[in-house]
Amino acid sequence: MSTNIVGKISLLIALVLFSLPAISAEKHIGILVYDKVLTSDVTAPAEVFGVATRKSWFSDYKVLLIGVDRDAPVVTTEEGIRLTVDKTIYDDLELDALIVTSSYVMDTLFENKDLTEFLKKQAENVSWLASNCSGAFLYAHAGLLDGYTATTWAGGEKQLQREFPKINVIEDRNVVVDRNRISSNGGIPSYQGALVLLAQMSSKRKAKEVFETIQLNRLIPWTEVTRYFPEK
């Protein structure tokens, strides 16, 4: 094959590659996990975003379960389900969204200085911070809800307000959105919180597609999600 032909082929390949759309860098949605975490606080967003990542419009995202302990590849939830950890708070992580979960006893987490620093560092870079149930207390202890409106586990709102008066705590509302902070009551409402977050990261139409894919429409109408969308 002559040098001239080889040159033309190389030029053609270069032109084709240059004309292809750039491949988006992989983005990450982190979900905090640890022993005795409440299962639904993890599995609800993991299912919502896991389904979304299998859609062409969200395929550049990946869900990561982020552990609190440096050497604990597996955690066991309060309900006895074993979860494999993808990364830990000690890894160098670039997240687009961080979802903080809860457990019945969280004092050791509040006292974990490494975890607090991790939350503060992520808050400087992520697009979204979300919490389920008493996960809001983790953000509160790190000062990341000061000046924001938020909620926590149903029945724990007064405690959150009393302990952190700089937060505007909302009662009797499953999901609260304030700028780039989203908080939910946890448990089953974690699905609503995850869908609200997904809608903010994509669109209402696409979030509804996931809502129907997981058949949540068999239990509640779509309006039970859209009612928590922030007013534009």
Rank of each mutant, 00 (worst) to 15 (best):
S2K: 07
T3Q: 13
N4Q: 11
I5H: 05
V6R: 08
L11D: 12
L11R: 14
L11E: 12
L12K: 09
L15E: 13
L17F: 14
F18A: 09
F18M: 09
L20Q: 07
A22R: 08
I23Y: 07
I23E: 08
S24T: 07
A25S: 14
E26C: 06
E26T: 13
K27E: 11
H28Q: 15
V33E: 03
V33P: 08
V37P: 04
L38Q: 14
L38C: 11
T43Y: 01
T43L: 09
A44T: 06
A44Q: 06
P45Y: 00
E47A: 06
V48N: 01
F49I: 02
F49D: 01
G50E: 03
T53N: 10
R54N: 15
W57Q: 01
F58A: 03
Y61Q: 06
V63F: 06
I66V: 02
I66A: 00
R70L: 05
V74S: 02
V75L: 11
G80N: 15
T84W: 14
V85P: 00
I89H: 03
E94M: 10
E94L: 10
D96P: 08
I99Y: 08
I99C: 03
T101C: 08
Y104D: 14
D107R: 12
L109P: 10
L109R: 14
L109G: 08
L109M: 13
E111P: 13
E111A: 15
N112V: 14
L119M: 09
K121L: 06
K121V: 04
N125K: 11
V126I: 14
W128Y: 13
W128M: 11
S131F: 04
N132E: 12
S134G: 04
G135T: 01
L138S: 04
Y139S: 00
A140I: 02
A142I: 00
A142T: 00
L144V: 03
D146I: 01
G147C: 00
T149F: 00
T151M: 03
T152M: 04
T152E: 02
W153C: 05
W153Q: 09
A154D: 12
A154F: 11
A154H: 12
G155R: 11
Q159G: 03
L160I: 02
L160Y: 02
Q161H: 05
Q161I: 01
E163V: 00
K166Y: 00
N168V: 01
D172G: 04
N174H: 13
V175I: 15
V175K: 09
V175S: 06
R179K: 10
N180I: 02
N185T: 10
N185H: 10
G187Q: 05
I188H: 06
P189S: 01
S190E: 07
G193Y: 09
G193I: 11
V196G: 11
L198S: 03
A199N: 12
Q200V: 09
S202K: 15
S202I: 14
S203C: 13
R205P: 05
V210F: 15
E212F: 08
I214L: 10
R218D: 07
L219F: 05
I220N: 07
I220G: 07
T223H: 12
E224W: 07
E224N: 09
Y228D: 07
F229V: 11
P230R: 13
E231P: 04
E231Q: 12
K232C: 06
